[in-house]
Design a binder for these strands. Structure first.
Lengths: 172, 172
DNA sequence: CGATATTTGATATAATCAATAACAATTATC
DNA sequence: GATAATTGTTATTGATTATATCAAATATCG
């Protein structure tokens, strides 16, 4: 018998929390989050899901995921790079990056070009369409997505938040 | 022809960034992150992965994932709840929660008990072992995991970060 | 009361994401 | 020139997330 005493007791009505909670009918009381509210990782994950969700909504007209958007951004700012370099800086494993690129290339947003230096590697290039889509995506992200975060947190807090997250991502 | 002019040009040595970068040998320069550094969702995701990684390291002796830890925490703070209630407050879908519980129960960390009120539902109960493991896990999390975050950010910043993340998770 | 609808836990299954091993072609190293 | 390392790729696995469906039990409502 490893089950605790309380556990072995007939699990009766006790419903909402041990302390005198007034239960009128069927609606159960909100659960106590306890130390969960203090767990940074928990809030981090919850917030991340919400933010990605909103990103998808805002950029839905262009059918871009956060990961795809980040690839297009990197390609634009870093011409002449190959798959390994782009994948590495995004934390994407090379094998998984292949199908990502296939998808982007099939939509004519970027192109793989064999390098003349190293015929093993593919230089990644944004197409004209890719540049247009990226430009539109940036606008949507700025005016809808980040704007909403700004409204919720205030500009100063948003910057402070970003700095702390970057610090964690870089130094933790 | 949808490929841009620059793209159609022979993709020559150009390697690291367009601007006069001094390339001595094989080592390529760090990529420009561009607007990526301003994207909250990006840093959020990166930070979240780092934090979870550290959590796993710190709690490795107890073999608990963040999700499992959150379940144990909730069970401890909310006795008498059933699977649906616990799963819902954690954002876990009921079907996926079944195997999670199977794992915890097989390790004798918690138990499903048929409710006497509603014989459909399983009241979830922490076992004694579950309580011990949870207690140890809390200690590890506090003294190793959260302590490290405190050291990196400073206590005040850590609290500020937590508040903003909770706000996003709740109101965004 | 009794027919119908809803809820609960569970199963099966699909889709996505992440991770490892291995391979051919190419390049680097010694 | 033989060997090692790199690049893109395929195959495969595991983990996570999601939907549909089911039997048992309960709730609802005529």
């Amino acid at each position: 018998m490893t089950v605790s005493k309380a556990a072995t007791d007939a699990v009766k009505p006790s419903r909402a929390g041990g302390k005198g909670s007034v239960e009128s009918g069927a609606e159960s009381t909100a659960l106590q989050m306890g130390e969960l509210a203090e767990l940074l990782g928990y809030s981090l994950k919850r917030a991340q899901l919400k933010v990605f969700e909103d990103f998808l909504r805002c950029v839905a007209p262009l059918q871009l995921t956060p990961a795809q958007f980040s690839v297009l951004l990197l390609l634009d700012k870093n011409p002449g790079r190959n798959q390994t370099e782009i994948a590495n800086t995004l934390g994407i494993l090379r094998p998984n990056f292949v199908s990502m690129l296939d998808a982007l290339e099939s939509r004519d947003l970027c192109t793989r070009m064999r390098s003349t230096n190293d015929r093993r590697s593919h230089i990644l290039v944004l197409t004209d369409k890719g540049r247009v889509v990226l430009s539109r995506a940036k606008k949507l992200v700025a005016t809808k997505h980040e704007a909403r975060l700004n409204a919720l947190l205030g500009p100063a807090n948003r910057v402070a938040l970003l700095e702390m997250l970057s610090k964690i991502a870089a130094e933790f």
